[in-house]
Amino acid sequence: MKYKDYYEVLGLPRSATQDDIKRTYRKLARKYHPDLSKLDDAESRFKEVGEAYGVLKDTEKRAAYDRMGDQWRNGQEFEPPPQWDEGFEFSGADDRGAEDARFSEFFEALFRGEHAGGGRASTGRARHAAGAGRHNATAQEMEDAFSGVPNSTPGQDHHAKVAIDLRDTYRGAQRTISLETPVLDASGRVVLKSRTLDVSIPKGVYGGQHLRLAGQGGAGFGEGRAGDLYLEIALRPQELFRVDGRDVTIDVPVAPWEAALGARITVPTPDGTVEIAIPKGSGGGQRLRLKGKGIPASDPAGTAGDLFARLNIVLPSAGSEQARAAYEALRQACDFNPRAQFSGDLS
């Protein structure tokens, strides 16, 4: 994927005000409009300018884009940094870009694709969650929200993505999180306003799930209720464990004699250690299932995931005379051809 420097596309510095961006876009849109320009690349330039404006005119998109830094160059191979949108608080505003823009792969990856997080980036999921929250409103709140009375406007729902450790899903946790919300300063430049919240992470939460914090979204107008804050949970990368839904997998190194003769070994889990039995004659890549040892259920009626121990047979070094002698004795003692399936007519 190629990085797009939207500031370079518009010919503006990163310190440009929102008014600077609007004026420059209007000038370039006229210059490259396919119906007005005779340049061969007018249409592609027009679309490129439209996409840049679609991001930079929007306070939240621009702040999210700026958050990745300025170390990349236009056209450079690019991959979004891990958890680049963690702790970035979005409102429930519309996520459309410039009307005439056909969005690039770069735009889709950041604001609508798999790399995007809990706000603009996962608009469909967030709006679904927001809708679920609104269904819990009281009759009076619904009446106030749609009564048209100016002093009873409810606040917008907000969305953010937060990363937690895998062990937090096993035990639950109390965490203090920091969120940044983009706002315009007095000179029309985008700045980030920070706040911290104490959050209860429930046991059994999993990656992609949304937690609703009632009343922690945008402020209401007058007597209108505050919006809610929806936190999308992401799991930090784990050194030992891989997560698929509620199932967790760990690669377990075993010695050849443990695999051949069987053994009982201790392996780590996100919630402590467990002892597992290696069956006799186990092979590399074989998975042993520990039922119910994955991410716990989030409610009593739910089902916990499983923990899978994937066996990885590790060979001892033959660096000493004693080790080489042992390997030679093993070779002579075993009538073993690991490539027996290659023999015979393979045509």
Results as ranks from 00 to 15, higher is better:
D185G: 08
V254C: 11
D228M: 10
I233S: 00
L315W: 11
D247A: 00
A52R: 00
V9Y: 08
F342S: 06
G319K: 07
G113E: 10
V267Y: 08
Y327G: 08
V314H: 08
E143F: 15
V49C: 02
V243R: 01
A214G: 10
L288V: 08
G285K: 15
T24K: 15
A101H: 04
C334Y: 14
T196G: 07
E143D: 14
G118P: 10
A160Y: 05
E143L: 13
D85W: 10
D247G: 02
A260V: 06
A63H: 05
A64V: 12
R189N: 00
Y170H: 04
T123V: 13
P80R: 05
R189V: 01
D95M: 10
A297H: 05
D100G: 05
A163P: 01
F146Q: 13
D165T: 13
K2M: 14
E141N: 15
S317Y: 14
R14L: 14
L36M: 11
S343R: 11
A214V: 09
T273H: 11
T153W: 05
H135I: 11
Q71C: 07
H135T: 13
V314C: 02
H115M: 08
Q238F: 12
P81W: 07
A121M: 13
G124A: 15
G188C: 02
D66R: 08
T266C: 00
D198K: 01
A121C: 15
V9A: 07
Q174D: 09
Y327Q: 03
S104F: 03
D168V: 04
S187E: 06
H128Y: 09
A132Q: 06
D198G: 01
R310N: 07
E232T: 01
E258C: 14
R264K: 07
R287M: 02
P316L: 08
A109Y: 12
Y327F: 13
L28H: 13
D70E: 12
R30N: 10
D271M: 04
P182T: 06
D244G: 13
Y7E: 05
I313H: 10
P237G: 02
G272D: 09
G215L: 00
D100F: 14
F90P: 06
G285C: 00
G54M: 01
F107M: 00
A323I: 00
D228S: 00
E60C: 04
G344R: 02
G292T: 11
A101K: 10
L288F: 03
T303I: 14
R189E: 00
K4L: 14
K27Y: 05
F88P: 13
K27R: 09
A297L: 06
G207P: 09
Q76D: 09
D157C: 00
D185H: 04
H128L: 12
D185E: 03
D95G: 11
I177N: 11
A109S: 13
L28A: 00
G207V: 06
L231I: 14
R23L: 02
E223Q: 14
A325E: 15
Y206W: 13
R134Q: 11
G302P: 12
Y327V: 06
I177T: 10
S178W: 04
K38S: 06
A326C: 10
T169D: 03
V199D: 11
R67F: 07
T181D: 12
Y230P: 11
H33N: 09
G117V: 10
S91E: 04
